[in-house]
């Protein structure tokens, strides 16, 4: 009857753990953050920057959401969610005290430990700043382990900038380059207007000793990678976080495939040279 050993924990593979919403933050018109703690008490699960959880709204559905809090703070699990469909819309209506299901954490992570000793360039587009925030927290906690640290952030308009207060604080309090640009603005916006890839030309980092972490719409990431390469950053030093349709999160539903990769378990964070050729093929 050829029984196979079932790795520990797999019995829970599909089964969400109840987590209680401790706090809700309204980040943007359509984007909000939830602080989650285990409904039955105990410590929230541990994760590494760049990983994601599957969040379950009872009876309605499950969505992959990256973890946007501090991996070393030991506090609640923080998820920043953009309402784009029925499940995330329903989550937007939830208040503190409501319960969600959580499965995770899943996927690969930003190579923040491996990047120590190097300059760190973080490039975010739109809500792509959320999956990068744990990497920023890591760099801030261990600031002395890095050379120059640059955050380049692009969004649609000034009203679409995520974590505005934090961006301001990071710019003021730490030894960081924080450069923000928007695609369009009215005249009262005192910051930059233009695409985020232009910021890559500045920042004063040393391209030969740089690790770059990039997250945003796929088109923006392609161009950001090109701008980094043009500055002389090595392919092996550029990391992207990809989005595909992640449903099972463990590589067995087949939906998130990109060539040989399951984005849910081999990614979402990939080194550029792992996916560069695949991203260049239409409809892959």
């Amino acid at each position: 009857m050829s029984a196979l050993p079932l790795p520990a924990g797999d019995a829970l593979l599909w089964r969400p753990e109840p987590y209680r919403i401790e706090r809700v933050r309204r980040d943007l018109a359509d984007t909000f953050s939830l602080d989650l703690v285990p409904a039955g008490g105990g410590a929230p699960l541990a994760f590494r920057p760049g990983q994601f959880n599957m969040l379950y709204a009872f009876g309605l559905g499950e969505v992959p959401i990256s973890i946007s809090g501090d991996a070393e703070a030991g506090g609640p699990l923080v998820h920043t969610i953009r309402a784009v469909g029925p499940v995330t819309e329903a989550m937007r209506g939830l208040r503190a005290g409501a319960v969600l299901g959580v499965r995770g954490p899943f996927g690969s992570h930003w190579p923040v430990v491996e990047a120590e000793g190097m300059d760190l360039v973080i490039i975010a587009g739109g809500v792509g700043l959320a999956p990068l925030r744990p990497a920023i927290y890591y760099a801030l906690r261990h600031r002395r382990r890095f050379g120059r640290v640059c955050i380049f952030y692009g969004a649609r308009t000034p009203d679409d900038l995520l974590y505005k207060a934090e961006l301001k604080r990071w710019r003021g309090e730490f030894d960081l380059v924080v450069d923000v640009t928007v695609d369009r603005a009215s005249h009262d916006w005192a910051g930059k207007v233009g695409v985020v890839t232009r910021l890559v030309e500045g920042g004063g980092y040393d391209p030969l000793h740089t690790v770059a972490l990039v997250c945003g719409p796929e088109v923006m990431m392609r161009y950001a990678a090109r701008a980094l390469l043009a500055r002389g950053v090595a392919r092996e030093g550029i990391f992207l976080s990809l989005e595909r349709n992640m449903k099972c999160a463990v590589g067995l539903c087949g939906h998130c495939q990109l060539g040989p990769h399951f984005v849910c378990k081999d990614g979402p964070v990939f080194r550029l040279d792992q996916v560069e050729r695949l991203l260049a093929v239409d409809e892959l």
Partner: peptide, 23 residues
């Protein structure tokens, strides 16, 4: 092995199930 995963709820909203089906 591709499969869809769908969450369903009863009409009264008190019970729910997750169903996997071939895709």
């Amino acid at each position: 092995f591709c499969a869809n995963v769908e969450d369903r709820a009863s009409l009264d909203g008190d019970s729910a199930e997750r169903v996997r089906s071939w895709d």
